[in-house]
């Protein structure tokens, strides 16, 4: 194995968990998320030498994942039949937290694809506005617009708004 291959393999192991979680929020299930991430890494490897550092490589990965997701949405790709996640019975003391998480995930999945992408990149992958704009190939202002509309939609969701309000109570 060459030094580049070793560095790439290490980068895949290090970057994939966070990238997979963002892809899961976008795509809605693990097989689709794995396909998005694997495609992104496959496109990154041939450009490995041209991307100066891990920051650039990560930015490129986010761009490919986001574009692949949005392109798939435009084409109405339905390669895999969507099925419900397996619900798990929660312990009593975790019931509220579970309801909150489930409601938030459902609300995020109900957002239009570009707003969902902004939420995944900004609030789960922890990218800055400029990095999110680069990943989505749009301006920072556009990201701000999508973000504002997405947050407004989430705030307007009765289940989410109520739960956040509940959370604030002592």
């Amino acid at each position: 194995m060459t030094a580049s291959e070793e560095r790439f393999d290490g980068f895949v192991r290090e970057a994939s968990p966070r990238l997979l979680r963002a892809a899961w929020l976008l795509a809605g299930d693990w097989p689709a998320a794995e396909d998005l991430v694997q495609t992104a890494f496959e496109k990154t490897w041939p450009r490995w030498g041209r991307l100066a550092d891990d920051r650039q490589r990560l930015a490129y990965l986010h761009r490919v994942v986001t574009n692949a997701f949005l392109r798939g949405q435009r084409r109405m790709w339905t390669g895999e039949l969507a099925t419900g996640d397996l619900p798990h019975r929660a312990a009593v003391d975790e019931a509220d937290a579970l309801v909150l998480r489930t409601s938030v995930l459902a609300a995020v999945r109900g957002l239009p694809p570009r707003q969902r992408a902004v939420i995944a990149l900004r609030y789960l992958a922890d990218l800055a506005e400029a990095q999110t704009a680069a990943a989505m190939r749009c301006s920072t202002g556009t990201v701000k617009g999508y973000s504002a509309r997405a947050l407004a939609a989430l705030r307007a969701d009765p289940a989410v708004a109520e739960l956040f309000a509940e959370e604030r109570k002592p």
Binding site: V12, L20, W30, E34, R101, Y123, L124
Partner: peptide, 15 residues
């Protein structure tokens, strides 16, 4: 909430 709600990936990609 999102960090808590989104599960850990079930398996790693194969480099």
């Amino acid at each position: 909430v999102l960090h808590d709600a989104v599960p850990e990936p079930p398996h790693e990609p194969d480099p």
